[in-house]
Nucleic acid binder design. Sequence first.
DNA 1: GGGGTCAGTCCGGATTCTGGACGCACGGTA
DNA 2: TACCGTGCGTCCAGAATCCGGACTGACCCC
Lengths: 147, 147
Amino acid sequence: MAAPAEPRVCSVARALDVVGEKWALLAVREVFLGNRRFDEMIRRTGAPRDTLTARLRTLVDAGILQRHRYSDHPQRFEYHLTTAGRDLYPVILTLLRWGDEHLAGLEGPPLVLEHNCGHRLIPEVTCQACGEVVDPAETARRSPTST
Amino acid sequence: MAAPAEPRVCSVARALDVVGEKWALLAVREVFLGNRRFDEMIRRTGAPRDTLTARLRTLVDAGILQRHRYSDHPQRFEYHLTTAGRDLYPVILTLLRWGDEHLAGLEGPPLVLEHNCGHRLIPEVTCQACGEVVDPAETARRSPTST
DNA sequence: GGGGTCAGTCCGGATTCTGGACGCACGGTA
DNA sequence: TACCGTGCGTCCAGAATCCGGACTGACCCC
């Protein structure tokens, strides 16, 4: 018999169920950049309208965005980040950096961020305890030791 | 006339074209965890076989994984991380942390990593220049000032 | 010969994505 | 009044993808 499937219970998988789709994360990127309205997001992400509608709905359901009426008559809505949404910033930054390093053409990164400290922002992932930059080779699984 | 679409040229979008899909990132996660073979990945991710086949192919084409024959007769292959693949570790870590914080049940995070420094690994995104933890509010776009 | 492993492929149906057209409630202009 | 533009979607039909399950083919072991 074939070995039984044992899909890993894992926060990465759970996170990707919510946010693991291009347009979802691009919509969140737009909100970080200050574009909170439907049509702006359509323009700047390139997503099909139906798809964006669906994504925004799941993002709201997941507690990542909040739908906020900014006009009655006609009803108009903006999307704002919740705390959970703001906590996605690191995810977007690491993707940004990876894209900058591995997919940017000769013209270099198309979007450059600046940190309040005055320097260009180059995000690094560090260990909260020791502050060192994290390297896959210096990391191990704890306790629930399975394959 | 409607405002013309101007999809943002952006490393996040480019990165998501390659890696912005659940199974792709879960396959990479498995390789990080040491499971380099097709059937193991099937077992531990839960992906449909066809889909995993397709994802692995795009990951290899994108230079994230390398297909490595470990047996002729019968031909058998393993997938190894390239440098670009290893550079995805931060992305996976930030997703992991987000999932741990926002989707973990009462039992807490299902997978805990330990850093070589001896503490539980809690990944943080910091500014390479000043070492501070990055906050969206302390970040701005540089030069190409468009909306 | 019978069973197991590994890495896929093949299949057909279900779901999802996509682009374009359309709807409707306004506001501004003339 | 009529007309145009904007904002935020919905509707549609065809295309692309996803999915699970069955199957293949080359081995190995008993």
